Amino acid sequence: MSVLAVIPARGGSKGVPGKNLRMVGGRSLVARAVGAARAAASVDRVAVSTDDPAIAREAEASGAVVVLRPAALATDESASEEALLHALAVVGDDVEVLVFLQATSPFIDPTDVDAAVARVRAGEADVVFAAIATPVFLWGPSAADGAGAAQGWAGVNHDASRRLRRQELPSQVAETGAFYVMDAQRFRAAGHRFFGRIEPAIVAERMALEIDTEEQLLLADAHAGFFEGGCS
């Protein structure tokens, strides 16, 4: 069974300019993602989908195959699924399990990826995604009254008039965005990352940081310095 890991990494980024080449713990985000994928024993091939020559060079230097992404698939509006489908078409038709990793999650544990691949291979799930348990009290805007007036905020996953203990809250998880492991054939047919039986892979909360801002980048670098001794 062929397992392909694809890391979409386009050149444009408005929130954090040049994000995919920014450094965390002495390595670029692209290099970290490629390293995590290559360290996963279940992954046969690693590809980086990009439209950026500098990212392509970094990906190749890190040991990945580069899939040059057309400009039409590398806009702000382009979905990750478009890059994944394009990569599958370029790399080959023999892929049975697709591992979608995001470079914006710099602390991916290869053993978590391997465990998720094993679940898809065993038929336990069509899709397994990285998540953290979130036993939190969620709040949202209340529905407007008959006159259209706002009614403040109300509990989403709890009755605010009855304070539950955390362990009594409904089971729920939050995506980390780090990885999604999918049955490749069914992904091709569905065209999106969530289809069939979907299951979470609970990962360590300290490994779940996702980078979308400069502040998160600084936090990730400090995190790497603490947990990885400054460089891994």
Rank of each mutant, 00 (worst) to 15 (best):
V3H: 06
P8V: 05
P8S: 07
R10N: 09
R10K: 09
S13K: 00
K19F: 00
K19L: 14
M23G: 01
M23I: 15
R32G: 03
R32I: 03
A33W: 07
A37V: 11
A37Q: 08
R38V: 07
A39E: 14
A39C: 12
S42M: 14
R45V: 11
A47W: 06
T50K: 07
A64M: 09
H86R: 07
A89M: 08
V90W: 01
D94F: 12
V97E: 10
V99T: 03
A103S: 14
P106M: 09
V113N: 12
R119S: 11
R121I: 00
R121T: 00
D126F: 02
V127F: 00
F129M: 01
A130C: 00
A130S: 15
A130P: 00
I132E: 06
T134P: 02
G140K: 15
G140R: 13
G146M: 08
A150N: 08
G152A: 13
W153P: 02
G155K: 09
H158Q: 10
R163A: 15
L169W: 05
P170R: 08
S171D: 11
E175F: 13
T176E: 08
M182N: 05
D183F: 11
A189Y: 00
A190C: 04
H192K: 06
H192E: 12
F194I: 08
R197T: 13
I202Y: 02
V203Y: 10
R206P: 01
L209P: 05
T213V: 12
E214W: 11
Q216F: 04
Q216H: 12
L218C: 10
L219K: 13
F227E: 08
E228D: 15
G230K: 13
S232I: 05
